[in-house]
Write a protein that binds this DNA or RNA. Structure first.
Lengths: 190, 190, 190, 190
DNA sequence: TATGAATGAGTGTTCATTCAT
DNA sequence: CATGAATGAACACTCATTCAT
């Protein structure tokens, strides 16, 4: 099947899926997703072969979006810590502003519906960002590790920080700074 | 009393649930769990009021077990870094040895079947360990943070490290050390 | 609209439910009802939200049908006893011809699955008939009673008569006449 | 199995069954009945072979009880209408005082769990009372009918009256009198 | 292509009855 | 005999997917 008629509908379905998954987990019925998207139950299946296909696509989209937002406005001119901080702040801000996307992503990540290939694409997004910052250089004692591992640490600390912010929104700024300090300690430590 | 409730069966059901959830996620059918445990479908419900009740109990058990294993053999005499390393190593070892428990825990954590009270108990387990190490002292520049946050960092880095080990088991020792270095950098950083 | 909801299927399900309930009581499985109606198990639930909803609708339908049959062919020109006899005969004939509808109605009536609103609609049907006959006039010494009570007596004697006919079908005519005599005695008595 | 040990327990189970059936219909779980009776789930089955056996026995007991109460204090000396009225009043009073027994009876009556033999015994109880009053004499134009039919009318009108009293308890006396007038009209009518 | 009715396998839970203690 | 844990068939209802319109 070639590109389906309405890109608009496709997008609406993906957005509806994100919302439904954030709310109800991967058990969210396709019927509810379709309703949220304002299309008929059957229509969903002309845009996506199956529920799994839809979720895999959603996973990739959300991962890419997070990645894009992270480097948006990234300025290479600054010094290293500033560049890291910049990316960190973007990530946290994106997470705060898109809490439900993040929640959906978490659900998808945990589920067994996301295949290897989607995961690979998702992982790439994170690594690309890290590589950008890493610049092939050794950073402190972790130098021997791949940018992979750095990306993992970044995301782990970022998500943890966002979880804390979810629970204590009023401490947002403090938590964001504390999270970054932790990250920077990791990176700059000997 | 007639045949008393068998602690053995209760344990078998819990173990079966862990296995099933690790394999199939929280959608694992109670029928399969019962079969794995070697009991009749109905028996599961004499030991646990509902699937949710079973999963909440499983969540608590796994969290507590992880906590217990972490401080098992903890020796307070050593110096601070050694004590942290000791706990870190225990956590990683537990995670490696109980990969499926950890996977189950992840599924449970993400699902909406775990109620507040179970989450509270679970969170306590992690904090207790952190508090033990934290000893009320300020640690580096993060000193202003609660032991809460430190526990969060510990778990985040630990889980991330375990995820890497899952994918590259042959680099286990190296990853374990790198993970600890990251953790220690956070803790000791100025 | 795609395939529209088929009135035919809806009717088939209702009829199947009547038959199943007459046979097996309100415990009749929805699966059996669906099979009797010649539709898939799930289809039943696209026509009725739940088993209870189905049963409430069935109750109303049967009540209304009984009411309609009762006044069918009613001729207001005749004298009072003739009019009553006419309605009585219709009720008995309907009951004899629709023994299973009547049985189903009995089961439904006794069950706790019929909500207030359905009962109200059902009661209205009976009262409307009685009011028609009652014509606001005082009838014998019972005059002080509401048409309500007269309707109750009518139905009580009618159902009892039908129960006797069920057990001794060969005495049908005699029982029908005896039942009416009882009713007329009540109505005309001083 | 000979008579079981404790007549007391047997009675408790029957009473519990009446209560449970009045509340929940014939679907009342044996476990709940046992609990209400203060015995273990299994014990119920040493006193009654099955749920059906219990319900059949309960049906007979309740029918007999109603019959006994009806003729309690019956004085043959009075004149005919007084004797009928006396029995009528007893029935209504019993019904009012034992609303839940009556409700249970209704549930049992409608269910398919009551076998022919129990129904026969039950029917006997009602007929015995009627026969007592009927005294072999012809009563009005209904004379050709069996005492059977008279008993049927009595019970039909009595139950209907009780149903009205259930819904409008404050009109109890008036309804009781109206019901009797209806009954007496039937009996004495030419 | 869009729609939503139709399908039937799959699910959590209940419950009468059995039987080990 | 009394107990209540164990059993597994049965049930109402859900849902991804298909397909007639």
């Amino acid at each position: 099947m070639a590109r389906p008629l309405s890109e608009e509908k496709r997008t609406a379905i993906l957005a509806a899926a994100a919302e439904a998954v954030a709310d109800l987990g991967v058990g969210a019925p396709t019927a509810k997703i379709a309703a949220l998207a304002g299309v008929a139950e059957g229509t969903l299946f002309t845009y996506f072969e199956s529920k799994d296909a839809l979720f895999n696509q959603l996973y990739i989209d959300l991962k890419l979006e997070a990645g894009v937002r992270m480097i948006a406005g990234y300025r290479s001119g600054r010094d290293l810590p500033d560049r890291w901080r910049q990316v960190w702040d973007q990530y946290i801000e994106w997470g705060v502003a898109n809490a439900s996307s993040r929640k959906a992503l978490g659900q998808l990540e945990a589920s067994d519906r996301i295949g290897e290939s989607a995961r690979y694409v998702g992982a790439q997004a994170a690594q690309d960002v890290a590589a950008e910052l890493y610049e092939g250089r050794n950073i402190g004692l972790l130098g021997e590790q791949s940018s992979n591992f750095i990306a993992g640490i970044f995301v782990a600390l970022g998500d943890m920080t966002l979880d804390f912010i979810d629970r204590e929104p009023e401490r947002r700024e403090r938590l964001k700074r504390a999270g970054f300090k932790a990250l920077w300690n990791v990176i700059s430590g000997r």
